[in-house]
């Protein structure tokens, strides 16, 4: 069971309080009707499936209820960092070197 840092609670808490919520930084298009079928398909279904550092969403569902973003190494299963929804993906070069 992992410990996960909730950026809203500013606390590191048991994984049991959290739920995974898919890949991060895939924003819903402002006006979906303007997208081609291919663009809409990519938005719906195409995901990166990274081996390494993966930007993903979690929800502190049994805590403060907030969705937030995380960078997690899919090889070691380690969280590099977590950050609030809407924030840009942080640079984690240093953290990755330390893994």
């Amino acid at each position: 069971m992992l410990l996960i840092h909730c950026p809203y609670c500013d606390d590191t808490l048991p994984e049991l309080e959290f739920a995974y919520a898919g890949e991060a930084h895939i924003a819903r298009p402002e006006d979906p009707s303007k997208l081609s079928d291919e663009e809409w398909r990519d938005f719906l279904f195409i995901r990166t499936n990274v081996k390494g550092v993966h930007a993903e969403r979690w929800r502190h569902i049994n805590g403060c209820g907030r969705f937030f973003n995380a960078l997690r190494d899919t090889v070691s299963d380690r969280f590099l960092t977590t950050y609030k929804a809407g924030e840009a993906r942080p640079d984690t070069t240093d953290l990755e070197a330390a893994v």
Binding site: A19, A27, R28, G65, A85
Partner: peptide, 13 residues
């Protein structure tokens, strides 16, 4: 509820 919270928090804050 989870789906509604998701849209509300992350798409239409």
């Amino acid at each position: 509820l989870n789906m509604m919270e998701d849209y509300l928090q992350t798409e239409w804050p």
